[in-house]
């Protein structure tokens, strides 16, 4: 009985995860290493990877900063009423429930060229939709809960007493944060950063809708994969996808490592 279950489990993993991964890798190298290299060194591929890199960096920075601050407010601030805090707390999770395509659509509706806000921005010469800012906003929307949800439970667990103790000893907000709070939430923040990087690296639906997928302008690595498949250029798609998958696997290893550190401290 027991052996059967273990074999079944292995089977599921092989069929669902190992086989597709392996197949993709062989496909990417179907024309040898040079084919793989050629698919990556296309100018549009380089540009798409660069765009993805920019989005990841900007989104991770903003999401980390605002995520930590918001987590602090939602856990600690008593200038927010209890009920308001509860409401905000449940709103944090909403992006989980929103399909990325809809997330992108929201931003098109709100800031697109046909909307009032979008027209306003266009007048001052800033394009949001079908441009970099829109892609960042869309990715921020999708990654929003990740940092908040990592940091909040840790803040709740450590409680406010150490911070209060610091204040009775004469330390003000900034010192208290760096000397007392930060060491406790450090690993949760790192874990949140890894999750944010992984999510923004892989974001597809929201970015596809918002960016318009313009080659050499707003195309990211994932949307390039999509376009390559649409153009029946499966080998090239496999090359880019393999790079993305390698990054994801690396992030997964980092996740495991930081999870373990999180437990220790």
């Amino acid at each position: 009985m027991r052996k059967l279950w273990i074999i079944l489990t292995y089977l599921v993993f092989i069929l669902l995860i190992a086989a597709p991964l392996g197949k993709m890798a062989t496909e990417a190298f179907s024309d040898g290493f040079s084919g793989f290299w050629a698919s990556l060194s296309r100018p549009e591929a380089l540009h798409a990877l660069m765009m993805t890199g920019f989005v990841v960096v900007v989104v991770t920075l903003l999401n980390t900063l605002f995520g930590i601050m918001l987590a602090l407010y939602l856990v600690r601030a008593n200038w927010l009423g209890k009920r308001l805090k509860g409401l905000l707390n449940s709103i944090v999770d909403l992006p989980y429930a929103v399909s990325p395509v809809i997330g992108g659509l929201m931003i098109v509706l709100l800031l697109g060229p046909d909307s009032a806000l979008g027209a306003l921005f266009e007048q001052i010469g800033v394009n949001i939709v079908y441009a970099f800012p829109g892609m960042v906003i869309a990715t921020l929307f999708v990654t929003f809960p990740l940092m908040v949800r990592e940091v909040m439970p840790v803040l709740q667990e450590i409680g406010s007493q150490q911070e209060e103790a610091a204040s009775t000893l004469g330390a003000y907000g900034w010192t208290t944060f760096w000397k007392v709070t930060w060491p406790s939430i450090r690993w949760a923040v790192i874990y949140g950063v890894i999750l944010t990087v992984a999510r923004s690296l892989g974001e597809f639906g929201a970015v596809l809708v918002v960016s318009g997928n313009i080659m050499n302008k707003t195309q990211t690595a994932t949307t390039l994969v999509y376009q390559d498949v649409e153009n029946f250029n499966v080998t090239a798609a496999g090359g880019v996808a393999l790079v993305l998958a390698a990054f994801s696997a690396g992030l997964l290893l980092l996740m495991e490592w930081s999870k373990r550190r999180k437990g220790v401290h």
């Binding site: 597709p20 991964l21 993709m24 690595a221 994969v225 499966v234 993305l244």
Partner: peptide, 13 residues
Amino acid sequence: ALPTAVGGLMILL
């Protein structure tokens, strides 16, 4: 961790 588009491509292949 995997981008969903990559997941789709893997299944397609």
